[in-house]
């Protein structure tokens, strides 16, 4: 039986295209899928990290409040733009059961991080991040990366990079409207 070269070429092209698509999908899953496909809608991975004031903060201890979890670093210019907004948003929505938590993901000393936070007038807890915590959130390879948790501790949204203030406000309002407002445990 004689094989038609064009058909064989076509089959080879389809196989290669499928391989390409598979590789792309695998990569997307690796980069985003954990957070997109599995993390959003799920309970936020719990962690306990030291804060700049020396006390430890456990994420699940904030249950009952909507939480904005912001991964940032002192070397990150875009993170610096968001911080004054966060200060305002904490003031505005804090009394309604909203809490911003910053997680510093850099190698700077605690003193430098504290100095930076002071310069920015930060009025919310800054935690000293660990790689393992970032990994539990699908890997924090872009800064800023911000997650929004509803009052039950469920992840409802995630944003990479600098966003407009209105994007944060929308997510915060949504986070505050979901879940049960209970007294946060100490």
């Amino acid at each position: 039986m004689k094989r038609n070269p064009l058909i064989l070429f076509f089959i080879a092209a389809i196989v290669a295209a499928m391989l390409f698509a598979g590789i792309r999908m695998a990569r997307n899953n690796r980069a985003n899928g954990f957070a997109k496909g599995q993390l959003i809608g799920q309970l936020a991975p719990d962690f306990e990290l030291p804060a700049l004031d020396g006390k430890n903060l456990k994420l699940s201890g904030l249950r009952g409040k909507a939480v904005l979890l912001n991964f940032w670093a002192t070397y990150c210019g875009p993170c610096k733009i968001e911080m004054p907004w966060f200060v305002e948003l904490q003031k505005e929505y804090g009394p309604q059961g909203f809490q911003i938590v910053g997680v510093a993901m850099d190698d700077a000393s605690t003193e430098d991080i504290a100095k930076f936070a002071k310069e920015m007038g930060v009025n919310y807890p800054i935690l000293l991040g660990k790689e393992s915590v970032g990994e539990s959130y699908g890997g924090v390879s872009v800064l800023p990366t911000t997650f929004f948790l509803d009052r039950d501790g469920k992840l409802i949204a995630r944003e990479f990079g600098l966003q407009s203030r209105s994007v944060f406000v929308d997510h915060i309002k949504k986070a505050m409207s979901q879940g049960h407002a209970v007294q946060a445990q100490k």
Partner: peptide, 20 residues
């Protein structure tokens, strides 16, 4: 013929590799 198939496969593999 084999050359043609190999070329096609290499072409698409290179494309996929570039994306990687």
């Amino acid at each position: 013929m084999k050359m043609l198939l190999a070329s096609a496969f290499l072409l698409f593999s290179a494309w996929a590799q570039d994306d990687l």
